[in-house]
Amino acid sequence: LTVQLGNLEWHFDNPEQALKMAEELAKRYQLKVEIDNGTLKFK
């Protein structure tokens, strides 16, 4: 699973870790998370 923020990307083997990080980033920057083809992206 990949977490993508702008041109930064983090790759996780563990989806739970990816979701946890995505939630933290979304909270911190007040963004919405969307999943696009196995990639978590922020809007």
Results as ranks from 00 to 15, higher is better:
1 L>P: 04
1 L>I: 12
2 T>I: 12
2 T>A: 06
2 T>Y: 06
3 V>N: 02
3 V>L: 11
3 V>Y: 03
4 Q>G: 03
5 L>R: 01
5 L>N: 02
5 L>V: 06
5 L>I: 08
5 L>A: 03
6 G>F: 07
6 G>E: 04
7 N>G: 12
7 N>E: 09
8 L>K: 14
8 L>M: 13
8 L>A: 07
9 E>L: 14
9 E>T: 15
10 W>L: 08
10 W>M: 06
11 H>K: 09
11 H>A: 05
11 H>R: 09
11 H>D: 03
11 H>I: 08
11 H>E: 03
12 F>Q: 00
12 F>M: 03
12 F>Y: 07
12 F>V: 03
13 D>H: 09
13 D>C: 10
14 N>W: 06
14 N>A: 07
14 N>H: 08
14 N>G: 04
14 N>T: 12
15 P>V: 13
15 P>E: 08
15 P>D: 06
15 P>I: 13
16 E>H: 11
16 E>G: 09
17 Q>W: 10
17 Q>M: 12
17 Q>T: 11
18 A>I: 05
19 L>S: 04
19 L>R: 09
19 L>A: 04
19 L>C: 07
21 M>C: 15
21 M>E: 03
21 M>Y: 15
21 M>Q: 03
21 M>I: 09
22 A>M: 06
22 A>P: 00
23 E>F: 14
23 E>W: 13
23 E>D: 09
23 E>H: 12
24 E>A: 15
24 E>H: 13
24 E>Y: 15
24 E>L: 15
24 E>F: 15
25 L>V: 05
25 L>Y: 09
25 L>M: 06
25 L>E: 00
26 A>S: 07
26 A>R: 05
26 A>N: 03
27 K>V: 07
27 K>W: 09
27 K>Q: 10
27 K>P: 00
27 K>G: 05
28 R>Y: 09
28 R>D: 02
28 R>E: 05
28 R>F: 08
29 Y>I: 03
29 Y>G: 01
29 Y>D: 00
29 Y>H: 04
31 L>T: 02
31 L>F: 06
31 L>H: 03
32 K>V: 15
32 K>T: 14
32 K>L: 13
32 K>M: 11
32 K>N: 07
32 K>F: 10
32 K>R: 11
33 V>Q: 02
33 V>S: 02
33 V>K: 00
34 E>G: 03
34 E>K: 05
34 E>H: 12
35 I>C: 11
35 I>Q: 08
35 I>G: 03
35 I>D: 04
35 I>K: 07
36 D>G: 08
36 D>C: 13
36 D>T: 11
36 D>N: 11
37 N>V: 04
37 N>A: 08
37 N>K: 08
38 G>S: 06
39 T>P: 01
39 T>G: 03
39 T>V: 15
39 T>R: 11
40 L>C: 11
41 K>P: 01
41 K>W: 08
41 K>G: 03
41 K>M: 07
42 F>C: 10
42 F>L: 15
43 K>W: 12
43 K>S: 12
43 K>L: 12
